[in-house]
Design a protein around this nucleic acid. Structure first.
Lengths: 272, 272
DNA sequence: TATTATTACGTTAGGCGTAAAGATT
DNA sequence: AATCTTTACGCCTAACGTAATAATA
């Protein structure tokens, strides 16, 4: 039976030219390499070398065998990698969410479940979430509407309502409710990684400009040190604390009052 | 590093279901199989089994790994076979000849050369010989004319002349030379495996019928015990001895006086 | 003389089987 | 009780390295 370690020495010999160099490379003695080559020859059942007294070379069959041996070694390594990749994928829950809040809620629950699973999550647009579901690229999907897809079970998850957040002296501060139409044209501070919220704001407020900040603490500092309006939601019960001197005005449009739905791949044991 | 023998046990376990049966199949002890499975797991670097106290089963990754392991084992076996096939082909001289006489002469020379080569030879029609040359299916080709083909070197080899061989009292016996036209219509005894001679006779003598016999000694008996004419050539110096009471009449047509040419694949060291 | 392959040989590590334990049906 | 997996343990093989040989460049 072929031995992959010996085959490696065999292919190394094809590259290095002498058994001594092979021995050096593998940190073994030259007699050991000699024996390995004899074994390889024995396993193949044909002569692979032309030997003179202190010189050994591959013959034509030997050179042919090296090519196939290299392929075989490569395939063996790929096999290991593929099995490992499969195992990893099997132990990874992939979540695609259209918004941060429901994702965080999900992550809490999954962590609480205490499974030994790795979680791979990302926030993206509705379209990207749908694409992931259709192509079985995720195990759990979060969308602001119901989705029906073979192999997934959808259920209502949570509710989130959007607010405009302005300093007390701001022109918008005197309203106790607002519509997208009214705030269209004002420039806003905006977090990145907002998923569908980002798309929603930009389509509903085409006349507005958005200053985007990724870093969370930097964003909060910016909000506190500027008079620009920003958004918040009722998901943050402590929103008055974080931004002192700011008031939160509900947005009346239906699009600002979102019900999130979770689509879970069938067979996944996740309590939601 | 993966061990193919252990992988074989691994795939056998997938088929047989218990380690005991694997041990039985491979004529080794169960502890040995246990260790092999532990090694396989270690090599893949992932868990492949679900173990209870006296029961071991493949998990999902394990079932996946089995598929790849089977492929790998199969490829290893194919590798050995391909190398052996290549080696055999390398040590085999393939000869396609249009006629027996020049083939026998060639075989004599090759055997005298005392190479350790296997010789694979066959007699066939001119068309088949040409096809073999064009498609590199032979190392040496024998034809009744010159052929020019990339990678082959052609040289004149030997000469052979066809004779009609009839009993003394036969109607044709009084001629001291004959043409195909004259003998067309007579029925002939014919050997099989004659290559292009067969084609030649049948096209030159469409009105004749041929009684074909494969076995050499049977053919000679038939000739001696019948009055039917047959063919012979000057390649057989002892033709008078074999067929006593028969006379040999040369055929005058140019097609009956053949010069054989040998096309040898370049790089083949055969003295002709 | 330096390098290389191979053989001979002694040592040791690792692989195998036996025995036994622990568990399930 | 029978079957199965796994651990413990001792033996023994077989693989390795050292030393030596022989040959070459």
């Amino acid at each position: 039976m072929l031995d992959l370690y010996e085959l490696k020495q065999f292919t190394a010999f094809a590259d290095l030219g002498t058994l001594s160099k092979v021995a050096e490379k593998f940190h073994i003695s030259t007699p050991s390499v000699t024996r390995s080559m004899q074994n390889v020859e024995e396993c193949f059942g044909v002569t692979l070398f032309s030997r003179s007294k202190n010189r050994i070379e591959l013959n034509e069959t030997g050179r042919f065998a090296v090519e196939y041996a290299k392929k075989l070694i490569d395939e063996a390594e790929q096999t290991v990698q593929q099995v490992q990749a499969y195992d990893l994928k099997l132990k990874t829950i992939t979540i695609k969410s259209c918004a941060p809040a429901p994702l965080w809620e999900l992550l809490k629950k999954i962590n609480n479940a205490g499974t030994g699973m790795t979680v791979s999550s990302s926030i993206c647009s509705n379209e990207e979430v749908i694409h992931a579901v259709k192509n079985r690229l995720c195990d759990i999907a979060v969308l602001p509407f119901e989705i029906s897809e073979e192999g997934f079970e959808t259920s209502r998850f949570m509710n989130e309502n959007l607010f405009v957040c302005v300093p007390e002296g701001h022109a918008l501060a005197e309203y106790n409710q607002l519509s997208f139409e009214q705030i269209n044209g004002f420039n806003f501070l905006l977090r990145s990684e907002l998923g569908f919220w980002d798309t929603l704001c930009r389509t509903k407020m085409p006349a507005s400009k958005f200053l985007v900040q990724t870093d969370d603490t930097v964003f909060n500092e910016l909000v506190n040190s500027s008079s620009l309006p920003c958004f918040t939601t009722d998901y943050f019960p402590n929103r008055q604390v974080i931004y002192p001197g700011r008031i939160n005005i509900p947005i009346t449009d239906n699009e600002a009052k979102v019900n999130f739905y979770v689509a879970v791949r069938k067979g996944f044991f996740v309590n939601i």
